[in-house]
Nucleic acid binder design. Structure first.
Lengths: 214, 214
DNA sequence: CCAGTAAATGAACGGTGTTCATAGAACGGT
DNA sequence: ACCGTTCTATGAACACCGTTCATTTACTGG
């Protein structure tokens, strides 16, 4: 009975084609420019046909979001193989920022459009791309700690969240605010190096110069 | 000739009323729920009347954006009076994060909706709310440096941008992604303390344990 | 060849931002 | 007191949008 198989394959193919074209539109003109009617015309079907394959516009967005995050995870994975944790932190951070800048509309869709989409990605414990990606970052600090190179009271999970927030801040600020001067890569370097080693050459408050408080 | 003055005053009042109602709608239901038609109905005028006071919907958004950023600046200013730079960094950082969480839709409008709006805010040298707010943060590092407490090669502007990015990352991540566990305030503390002092108890790589690379 | 099923669609509903010719009100000058 | 001008306000329209549903079309198994 190869016929129903073929039908199902064709159905899946059309779904895939819709997603492909939708992705192109989002990448080129942003998510807000993704219109069901234009999308339908681009795939040469009537608008109503799209609803045979997706519940609504948001369902398409969700799918694109999930796939985009998969790509982000894929961009992080190579760096996770670096043995030395601090170097790994640097490599993965650079990969994260690069991904965000190279796929601005995808990144926007993942993290800056609909809170529901972003939140869903991080649901589920350890399975799911969200927790996995987060785990890769957290591992950096876990490894440091288990090697006895971090204070025992240090919380790897919290440090990882702070790091992610910092990287996300760099990307999202660069995507929305062209006025900041420092390049994203320089910003990333400054942020991670300072996070690791603290402010360069910092001295505690000198008594007499400025009101001492501590 | 008090008549034309009164007319102008009434005109300004209506403009103000429109903005007030628009702000309410944005705060309650988000920027995307701000509809010109609903707005017109709320102020009891025909939709076309709005266009006598604003060029278009985006102009209203821009005005709300500018005023919102003014409030953010206002939230930062008290902390800028703290004398000790490191304490100032902490106080202002906390104020920034608090503002973002307490005015989520305003913050979204300022930094996460339209890049044009966000970018405009930071135009102009030193005048303009954007550069002024940034200056407040940069001052922290300038003061540290001029007190001889920072390495001479440290770049206050770059450090300030990295700090802003970090704070913005915390806020925007909290606004879009409910899945992260650490509270914003804890995250802010972790980030700033680590930025200042580096990873807690960090030891350089121990030879033999893990492949050393440098 | 026919019945039945799945795919595809045209037309419609209610919504959006925006424009423009028209109507109305209020004012300054005569 | 009247007229002409100027500013305000609007109704109606245009071109879109997401979504739904009854209807038609295409095709397959019996």
């Amino acid at each position: 009975m190869g016929i129903s198989e073929r039908k199902e394959r064709q159905r899946a193919e059309l779904r895939e084609q819709i997603l492909r074209v939708a992705r192109d539109m989002v990448v080129k003109e942003g998510f807000s420019a993704l219109s069901m009617r234009k999308l339908a015309e681009a795939v040469e079907y009537a608008p109503a046909t799209l609803y045979l394959h997706f519940e609504n516009r948001e369902a398409i967005a969700r799918e694109l979001c999930v796939r985009g995050f998969g790509e982000l995870l894929g961009a992080l994975e190579p760096g996770s193989a670096v043995a030395e944790p601090l170097e790994r932190l640097s490599v993965m951070g650079a990969a994260y920022v690069r991904f965000g800048l190279e796929h601005p509309e995808t990144y926007r869709l993942i993290f800056m459009e609909d809170p529901r989409l972003s939140t869903e990605l991080f649901q589920g414990d350890s399975d799911g791309a969200g927790p996995r990606a987060f785990g890769l970052l957290a591992r950096v600090f876990e490894d440091l700690k288990s090697a006895g190179r971090l204070a025992t009271e240090a919380d790897p999970g919290r440090l990882a969240e702070a790091l992610w927030a910092g990287l996300h801040g760099i990307v999202s600020l660069k995507l929305t605010c062209a006025a900041f001067q420092t390049s994203a890569e320089e910003l990333r370097k400054t942020l991670t190096e300072t996070l690791v080693h603290g402010l360069p050459g910092l001295k505690p408050v000198v008594d007499g110069a400025g009101k001492a408080r501590h």
